[in-house]
Design a protein around this nucleic acid. Structure first.
Lengths: 292, 292
DNA sequence: GTGAAAGCGCTAACAC
DNA sequence: GTGTTAGCGCTTTCAC
């Protein structure tokens, strides 16, 4: 009788069942194509599994408002890419007593995470550039207090020092906040060093794209004048207009999707053991790097 | 006393207050950079205004599951880019009696919407290409049952016929579902016509990027062999590696942000009058189009 | 089996 | 002002 009118109130149901069928996603910014791919996978996977996704984007400056919003919300689980290595939000989030999975970045104290081997990635980038004969390398990264950039830098520097037996020159490392403006400035900085680098490792493809844009704008050809190696192997990297050499994972499932699968497992099954996954990286050798 | 433990239950509060401080966003796919820009703006604006955003992505095939999920949810308002010109979901959504704003696409019957003038955009594209001397034009669009593609095609064809006094050749219009594979096929189709087009209007920048990728892959140079004009004037369009000529709006606020502002107004203020906004387009003339 | 009642954790209304 | 109570719309339990 009420057949064609009645809509059960999901809020009332949530109140009694104590589950909202909603997950919170705290993602890095979408101007980084890596996060467009993970966000797409996560939202669509959650939908298939019957979950709604509340999306929040990491702020460049201060994440407190985002975390406060999430903390105030009742969700069944949290997926986040934005944590710092030694982030105090780790405890606050875990005090919620709901499943939490970190993807991309991880926290010093562990927890559930899905990452790529960042140190290995950095060393793959370095040895690729070194093998091509480059000796004057630059690195444009993000904040060192994130596991991703810390790991990539560490691996890159270590491999350089292993090859050449000399310290990597500090001034060839530029840490940015990964925004377009900051990366453009980094390019200006690096190209004005007394010995300009012949090759740059951009610690994400997003950084690589910004850097290539600026380099071309100020008159450099890639890879003729300077080689660029990115990381994440984002879809756009293989576009003919970029042909960006990049480090990326091997399998087809991105870190976000793997994280989402495990998060929903953790929500629905008994909290077996921690999920701590480190994917193996590999080099996707395209056209933005060439022998010197 | 309970000072350091108590977290108010937002679900219980929502039940009694009858508001969830949550909006639903049904967005086109993020592989279209237009939607990464709108989604970013919407989520961040909503957060500032104290609203959470539940994100859903339009499916290429069948949107029913998405709409069912949204219909089952209690949200304070809905923002959607995915509606068809004559979509029956229009009534179902409006039966919810909550504010609804369509952005990008609109419905035949009106409602609240924020769009760009699609017909004018199409005619701007046509006259730009015609002015450059091109007479053999191709069009790669999306489904005609969407206001955007319908309008862009209509304006493009009308302008062509106004200039040349002859019917636009049907076989030079390829309607796709805007996926990468479909656009690649469209490029193959168009380049194998007995008279290959010397210029293509891609009805979105996303389509333009896919088309350029395929064209270059099969050996064409842009714009030397073929001119490409996109639409949306997405951030990536101005990247040095693309330099994509595109049609876009004039102002700095994207359609999604404008839609979000009005949606939250409608939620918080009395439902004054309908918001029906049509932005004026303009040509961003870059390097992918040249005189024949 | 069917039906009534209790209760989830808040807010708002009403008393004192 | 401060305290108590009713009730939001479900689900689950318990009685019949």
């Amino acid at each position: 009788m009420k057949a064609l009118k009645y809509r059960p109130n999901s809020v009332a149901r949530s109140l009694v069942s104590n589950q909202t069928k909603t997950i919170a996603l705290i993602s890095g910014p979408l101007h980084n194509p890596f996060f467009v791919e993970t966000t797409t996978s996560i939202v669509n996977y959650a939908e298939v599994k019957g979950y709604r996704t509340m999306v929040f984007f990491e702020h460049t400056d201060e994440n407190r408002p985002v975390y406060d919003a999430v903390l105030a919300e009742r969700v069944d689980g949290i997926l986040l890419s934005s944590i710092f290595r030694d982030d105090s939000i780790f405890d606050e989030l875990h005090a919620l007593n709901i499943p939490i999975v970190m993807y991309n970045r991880r926290h010093n104290r562990g927890g559930n995470y899905v990452e790529i081997d960042n140190e290995l990635s950095g060393s793959i980038a370095a040895s690729h550039l070194l093998e091509l004969g480059h000796r004057n390398l630059g690195l444009i990264g993000g904040p060192d207090y994130t596991s991703t950039f810390h790991g990539r830098k560490t691996g890159f520097v270590r491999e350089y020092e292993r090859w050449l037996g000399q310290a990597f020159p500090e001034e060839m490392i530029v840490e940015t906040n990964t925004t377009e403006a900051a990366v453009h400035q980094a390019v200006l900085d690096l190209t004005s060093r007394k010995k300009m680098p012949t090759a740059i490792f951009a610690a994400t493809d997003a950084i690589a794209f910004f850097a290539m844009d600026k380099l071309q704008e100020i008159g450099y050809s890639i890879p003729e004048d300077i080689s660029i190696c990115g990381m994440d192997n984002v879809n756009f990297a293989s576009h003919q207009s970029f042909q960006l050499t990049s480090i990326g994972q091997k399998g087809p499932k991105n870190l976000g999707l793997i994280g989402a699968e495990h998060l929903i497992d953790l929500i629905e099954e008994e909290p077996l053991e921690e999920v701590q996954i480190t994917l193996e990286p590999t080099l996707y050798d395209r056209k933005t790097t060439k022998p010197i």
